[in-house]
Design a protein around this nucleic acid. Sequence first.
DNA 1: GTGGTCTAGACCACT
DNA 2: GTGGTCTAGACCACG
Lengths: 127, 127, 127, 127
Amino acid sequence: MDFNIRDDLPIYSQVVAQIKAGIASGAISPGDRIPSAREMAADAGVNPNTIQRAMQELERDGVIYTQRTAGRFVTDDIDLIATMKHQLADDKIRQFLHTMAELGFTEEETVKMISFRIQEDKTNGST
Amino acid sequence: MDFNIRDDLPIYSQVVAQIKAGIASGAISPGDRIPSAREMAADAGVNPNTIQRAMQELERDGVIYTQRTAGRFVTDDIDLIATMKHQLADDKIRQFLHTMAELGFTEEETVKMISFRIQEDKTNGST
Amino acid sequence: MDFNIRDDLPIYSQVVAQIKAGIASGAISPGDRIPSAREMAADAGVNPNTIQRAMQELERDGVIYTQRTAGRFVTDDIDLIATMKHQLADDKIRQFLHTMAELGFTEEETVKMISFRIQEDKTNGST
Amino acid sequence: MDFNIRDDLPIYSQVVAQIKAGIASGAISPGDRIPSAREMAADAGVNPNTIQRAMQELERDGVIYTQRTAGRFVTDDIDLIATMKHQLADDKIRQFLHTMAELGFTEEETVKMISFRIQEDKTNGST
DNA sequence: GTGGTCTAGACCACT
DNA sequence: GTGGTCTAGACCACG
């Protein structure tokens, strides 16, 4: 037993993940302008270079594109967004299955427990 | 869009979670002696008081018990352990469903995707 | 007419290009360790971060890989190296054809002039 | 491996090359008046002496001539221009062959690759 | 010693 | 004002 204190992802990776999640969920729409790097950095209390790096990674993935002086924009390529969304989901699923496996549950047990959980939530009102 | 940079759980909560996960998975067996607070604190590079607080929480949940001079031990109550294990799992499941909902997937879609993921993993080797 | 004074590529791109060229030409062999970022930075009189960025780009392209504390190494994937080499060459060719087109030569003229140049070099000794 | 960071040609050489290229390509016609040194220097944000030196070199090559009070003009000698154009092209060709040789390609391979590149460009539209 | 990340602050080009 | 690049220097994890 050892403890993963400070097992943070790098900040720039967190920023990448949050932007992608925002696009996947529809909170940020295709074609939307995203705030300037300086603005985001100030909001997050983080160095602009850190945001810059996150933006570079997003652009490399084709998720955003840059217009010289106008700022950065979410891609209009909805197919790419759909692919990205399923990629994010699949990552979460794998990670979840791994966590459950560590707790000693087989995949079948896990599926049953999820179905049960959903059933329960439906019969009761909300959480 | 705002960024939850550095949103760590308190360290003592992380310790509690890891001990519970260790017991649930069988890495730590019922009746096992747990290392001293001092020892764990040194291992983790953490203040002994932090470990102390985690131990108090575990004892309050009945997961461990203290024998005056001999140290702390994992409970022998396997029903309690089973309950705890399912509680942990259910928390993970709720959290997972919430994440997937944020990505814009319904519970039905989520279940289908998990089943698909398991199927895929089975047909291929590992990875 | 305007003048492209300081039309430099970014330093990190120059570093990337030189490493790739070195690998393509065989000056750096598959599996070779490349100097540490700090060393290269000192050699080039450049900030270590600039080299770091170049290395990240090379790693992203699969041209090099990183071993935690041991340093960075050229990939052993000779197919990837071959592909990279032809990519570099094709880029040079496109750029060359573009330059010649700007001078007012058709592609056919360009090919003839190259063949003539090679013939000349062969009949005379070297340059 | 060492890095030739910032290995610019002297500015006046760049100016010479650009003027020659402009004439070769027809962007500047025989007999055309060339802007004053002062004007070009202002455009390029460069010291007038630098332009002056470039003009001297061009005049020495016979590419331009000076009329005492009227300014500088491109030569009318189309044979000289043709020669200059082929000289420029030959320089580019030599330089290109050298680059390809450094990448490890023989002259024969280079010629084949250029022919292939041209063929490809023809079959597809542009790009 | 290695690479990885981050901060603080600078200068540039573009419009 | 935007993004793009670069420097200087710091701290961390790994072994």
